[in-house]
Design a protein around this nucleic acid. Structure first.
Length: 905
DNA sequence: ACCAACTTTATTTTT
DNA sequence: TAAAGTTGGT
């Protein structure tokens, strides 16, 4: 592929300039930025008019199409950058688009003001029209923490038991409703009744009222409020209609109903035909609000200063070359066509559980009649084998539009997708660790180009443990984020109180942090006082300390707090914000609190606070910093050191790596049992898409693993291979045979069973004791006495620093030679290993150390019996509890196991 | 108001 | 198992 940077002229023609127009009119000679696009990509870029759906498979140049399209629109004079609405889901995606457009347009055009996440654009709109939904333009945005505390108060206010009705649960329900665009009046009756003794709807209303009185909104409201405004105020909506000549949406398959409604309103409802997708009487598409959104551009003008497109604004006459295809911008009075371009991939829709509606993308052409649908199937990322495997797998899904990825460069020498079997998760981690070192040593493979993608984050731990003992650099991506840390939130709460004296939630958070002796009782009184007078807590506190209503001790403490805040507020306008922030943390005693804390995390927290102040440098004021943080809960992280990435499949979407390891392909884990239970067939399909996303992250090598034993919730479960393995095409897959002995028993294994360890275990499950696998397992018994089931080194290294990832850095080359390197060879078998008869739920085979109660249920074993266990070998029964045995194993120590998994010996 | 013992509950995550 | 949340005692 040609690089943009090289093919793009140093300085793009100024939009609207003669040069730009000339360029647009050039016709046959295409501008440089189009060079290097394949025909489909080019069509996606050049079809600027009318609704367009670009189905962009993994690795087909989706972002390139989006950015080039914007550059095209701008440099052909179709619109100013400020007339283009471009929405993404994540800040990261928005950032990337901004930089890439900057490169394309040669930096001559100011950054696009309407390129951002749904939420950040939502805030922008809402700040403009806040009063239309009863807010002030300086409203605050609650984070989940505040939200939950607020809900808890409401639940208590309703005299409900806040244990029976957890605030968190209600927060989730709220989120789901708002994702669907449902206001209190529209929520399904069943939902309303399901919470708080049928008070669901009342609570929702009370919650919204409370937000309004706090001049606050939650994330969902950033979409809900604009929708409400657009519906109730056609004049406002019409302004946006005139402004946004082109709309672009990234990752359209991830849009939820609210986002869909929001987009549909902006893209002009009146031109849309049908509204499908809602279920039942609470159809979100058919509720309140003015339906007719007929544009009436003459009713109001002057809101935007640049309503004409560059071409129109260009001096002189109407744009030259009126034959110039599809100039969308009509004269005033005629509603423009819908120039909406949605880019997405139905096969990568993995956020259904979060409210995403794959349906949005599946029915695009019904929503936007006459839509042009363009498929991008030419993949520039992966080998033919990887694409073949991924395509075949995803072919098992029914709900899809259907695409098949292909590559122009199939190479017979490319490695096939590998499937490996392991005994348990520790062996899996060990073998993957060895494979990584192998690649590093033999192929000079950068660790940065390798990733381990897991289904659930608990799987990460085994890898961390293993890599720590190996001294292998790794990086965990995801997990707790910087701005979600307690100390950061506390500090932010202080800042919020200073900038927003009405921010009660922030105030409540820190009145007694550090501990000042202002307990529940005092706060309750303060609350009542504030409520009675209808003033914010800080204001109430100010008044209250002048009265006799509080006992002298808390009164004086509270007075101190209040005067502190007053002082800081006065300093706000004239003090450098970073200095003020430091001063606040210092004078409030917050820093001191952590300095006096003797716990292990305290130094890290202080470090994080420093980092917080440091990151404030980039902003010009405290308020602007707060605004940023509310929406961008993300910090950039250093990619400097060479390290293997460990992350979930979800967070891997959009990334690519030379080599990808996919462990844990077992029924119950992947596909996850819960998806199956709760989502049925569509749940399974989403899991399959997740598998597809995983495989398509790999550029050259994809190595899949499954194990026969995994510890879940502290219990060992016997597992069977994922059905997805059966769905891989033999032609593109190698089934590997583990041939390792791991340098002896001490390393944790107890000898090699060969390729069929897992099928031995599976056979065991089904009671089919006569299979070859079982016989091998029996044979292994004999050799067991010599072996041991010791554990490899323990967990160490907790010195990871802030940010949204933790990293462990070892000196390069610290990992010396180890005994027993693993060698994998293709097995003789094909993929027919996983007979469907072996499928079934995972079974519990072993448990915790000590039984809690002894029941009198009969068991075929008694204390003192000698038994044999497939994983732990021979042992003596110490305790019988129903069907659970506590066994002292000769080599593995005392374990609790289900009796079905031991044999009399 | 604070800490220790007990119980509960364990996907996926952005804004 | 292990982390988080809750209860009950000081």
């Amino acid at each position: 592929m040609t690089d943009f940077d090289e093919s793009t002229p140093r300085s793009a023609p100024k939009p609207g300039s003669i040069a730009a127009r000339a360029m647009a009119a050039r016709g046959s000679q295409s501008p440089d930025y189009l060079a290097g696009l394949n025909p489909e990509q080019r069509a996606a870029v050049e079809t600027t008019e009318g609704p367009v759906l670009v189905l962009a498979g993994a690795g087909t140049g989706k972002t390139r199409v989006l950015t080039t399209r914007i550059a095209h629109i701008v440099s052909t004079g179709r619109a100013w950058p400020s007339q283009i609405l471009a929405v993404t889901f994540t800040n990261k995606a928005a950032r990337e688009m901004k930089t890439r457009i900057g490169l394309l347009l040669g930096g001559q055009v100011e950054g696009m003001p309407w390129l951002g996440t749904f939420h950040s654009i939502g805030v922008k709109i809402l700040r403009r029209h806040a009063e239309l939904v009863g807010l002030k333009s300086n409203f605050t945005i609650l984070d989940t923490d505040d939200q939950i505390r607020l809900i808890k108060q409401l639940i208590q206010a309703e005299n409900l038991d806040d244990k029976r009705w957890p605030a968190r649960t209600f927060a989730n329900m709220l989120d789901a409703w708002k994702n669907k665009g449902l206001e209190p009046a529209n929520i399904p009756e069943g939902d309303a009744r399901a919470f708080g003794n049928g008070k669901g709807r009342e609570l929702y209303k009370a919650y919204q009222d409370r937000l309004k009185s706090l001049n606050a909104c939650d994330f969902g409201d950033l979409l809900m409020h604009p929708i409400a405004i657009f519906r109730a105020h056609p004049d406002v909506l019409a302004d946006y209609h005139r402004r946004f000549r082109y709309i672009l949406v990234d990752e359209y398959q991830d849009t939820n109903v609210a986002q869909y409604l929001w987009l549909r309103l902006l893209a002009q409802r009146s031109a849309l035909q049908t509204a499908t997708g809602g279920e039942g009487e609470t159809d979100p598409f058919d509720d309140t609000g003015p339906r007719a959104i007929d544009d009436d551009p003459d009713a109001h003008d002057g809101m935007w200063d640049d309503e004409a497109s560059p071409a129109e604004a260009a001096e002189g006459s109407p744009p030259a070359g009126s034959d110039d295809a599809g100039r969308a911008v009509d004269r005033k009075g005629q509603p423009p066509r819908i120039n909406i371009c949605c880019v997405g991939d139905d096969d990568q829709s993995i956020y259904g559980w979060r409210g995403a509606e794959v349906d949005n993308i599946l029915r695009f052409d019904k929503d936007f009649p006459g839509a042009t649908v363009i498929r991008l199937e030419r993949n520039y990322r992966s080998t033919g084998h990887i694409l073949g495997a991924a395509s075949h797998l995803i072919g098992h899904n029914e709900d899809r539009l259907g695409k098949t990825l292909f590559t122009d460069h199939p190479d017979p020498d490319d490695p096939k997708v590998e499937v490996n079997a392991g005994w348990d998760s520790e062996e899996e981690a060990r073998a993957i660790g060895e494979a990584i070192e192998d690649l590093q040593r033999r192929e000079d493979h950068d660790l940065n180009d390798m990733a381990i993608l897991v289904r659930a984050s608990f799987q990460m731990r085994t890898f961390e443990d293993r890599f720590v003992t190996m001294g292998l650099n790794y990086r965990v991506i995801g997990g707790p984020r910087f701005y979600e840390r307690m100390e950061i939130r506390d500090a932010m709460a202080y800042f919020r109180c200073v900038c927003q004296p009405a921010d009660d939630l922030a105030f409540e958070r820190i009145v007694n942090t550090p501990k000042r002796g202002l307990g529940d009782a005092t706060i309750r009184l303060l609350h009542d006082y504030a409520r009675a007078r209808g003033v914010p807590l800080i204001a109430a506190a100010m008044q209250m300390v002048e009265t006799e209503e509080l006992k002298p001790k808390p009164r004086n403490t509270l007075r101190r707090v209040v005067t502190d805040f007053l002082r800081w507020s006065e300093l706000l306008p004239n003090t450098k914000h970073t200095e003020l922030a430091e001063q606040i943390l210092e004078e409030s005693g917050y820093t001191e609190m952590w300095q006096n804390d003797r716990s292990a995390e305290a130094p890290g927290r202080l470090e994080n606070l420093k980092e917080l102040i440091r990151s404030m440098e980039e902003y010009e004021s405290l308020p602007s910093f707060l605004e940023h943080v509310a929406l961008v809960m993300d910090t950039e992280q250093n990619a400097e050191m060479d390290a293997v990435s460990i992350m979930t499949l979800h967070s891997a979407k959009g990334l690519e790596f030379e080599t990808v390891f996919l462990p844990g392909w077992e029924e119950g884990l992947f596909p996850h049992q819960r998806s199956l239970d709760e989502g049925g067939r569509s749940g399974l399909e989403e899991e399959r898409r997740l598998a597809y996303v995983g495989i398509t992250r790999g550029k050259r090598r994809v190595k899949i693993w499954f194990v026969s034993n995994r510890r879940i919730h502290g219990l060992w479960q016997s597992t069977i291979p994922s059905r997805f393995l059966d769905e891989l095409p033999e032609a593109h897959v190698d089934v590997m045979e583990a041939n390792t002995s791991y340098g002896g028993y001490g390393a944790g294994g107890f000898g090699a069973y060969g390729s069929s360890r897992w099928d031995g275990a599976a056979a065991f499950n089904e009671g089919a004791y006569k299979t070859p696998g079982w016989r091998r397992a029996q044979a292994a018994k004999a050799g067991f006495a010599e072996g041991g089931a010791g554990q490899p080194g323990g967990r160490g290294g907790d010195g990871w620093s802030g940010g949204r990832s933790r990293e462990i850095d070892y000196d390069a080359g610290a990992s010396g030679a180890r005994a027993g390197r693993g060698h994998n060879q293709p097995a003789r078998q094909g993929l027919g290993l996983h007979a469907s008869a072996r499928r079934g739920g995972p079974r519990e085979i072993e448990g915790e150390l000590v039984a809690k109660s002894v029941s009198t249920d009969q068991s075929r074993f008694d204390a003192g019996d000698r038994v044999f266990h497939l994983k732990f070998g021979p042992g003596t029964v110490a305790l019988v509890d129903g069907n659970k045995l506590t066994v002292d194993f000769d080599k593995a120590g005392q374990k609790r196991v289900l009796e079905g998994f031991v044999e009399s010996a």
